[in-house]
């Protein structure tokens, strides 16, 4: 059992997401992370799914995904050189004069951006892989994380190879 990163190219149509996610739950798999958005092809979307399972189970899920009429292509990126990113927005307590300077210093180290400043809190935006965001969030805890929003993971193969349509 290990996490698999699947990239699923789909028709950008109503109901497609529930067809795709329904398939996972029906076959007993939990989705760890999910990200959906439009992509370079007009009329298509790309879904990145992280799911934990054994190789045979994931292979079966991929084959079943492929059978969905609205799914154009399914790729397992797990064993490929790839880049992965998540984005998080973190609202953290940072009162002027006390913790604010420290929080801003941490932000610099992690190359997070300050995107909103209020009297007692600031909002930080950070992108990176899961571990980096986890580490940043952990460090911010001591100052008081008021709210955290994280996107699902997105992934792309390194190099010139692309994941295009055509089953």
């Amino acid at each position: 059992m290990k996490p698999h990163t699947l990239s699923v190219l789909v028709e950008n149509k109503a109901g497609v997401l529930s067809r795709v996610t329904g398939l996972f739950s029906r076959r007993g798999y939990n989705i760890e992370s999910l990200a959906v958005g439009i992509c370079e092809e007009p009329g298509m979307s790309r879904i990145t799914i992280v799911c934990i399972g054994d190789d045979a189970g994931i292979e079966q899920v991929m084959k079943q995904l492929n059978k969905l009429i609205d799914v154009i292509k399914v790729s397992d990126l797990t064993d490929n050189e790839r880049v992965e990113r998540e984005l998080a927005l973190i609202k953290v307590t940072a009162e002027p004069g006390t913790s604010r300077a420290e929080v801003m210093q941490l932000a610099t180290i992690f190359r997070a951006q300050i995107i909103d400043v209020a009297a007692k809190t600031i909002i930080l935006s950070i992108t990176g892989d899961t571990e980096k965001i986890d580490a940043f969030e952990k460090l911010l805890r001591q100052y008081g994380v008021k709210e955290l929003v994280r996107t699902g993971r997105i992934a792309m193969l390194r190099g010139s190879k692309v994941l295009k349509g055509g089953k």
């Binding site: 789909v10 028709e11 969905l68 009429i69 609205d70 799914v71 154009i72 055509g166």
Partner: peptide, 8 residues
């Protein structure tokens, strides 16, 4: 003929 890019 019907063509569906996700179904071949």
């Amino acid at each position: 003929p019907v063509t569906l890019r996700g179904y071949q």
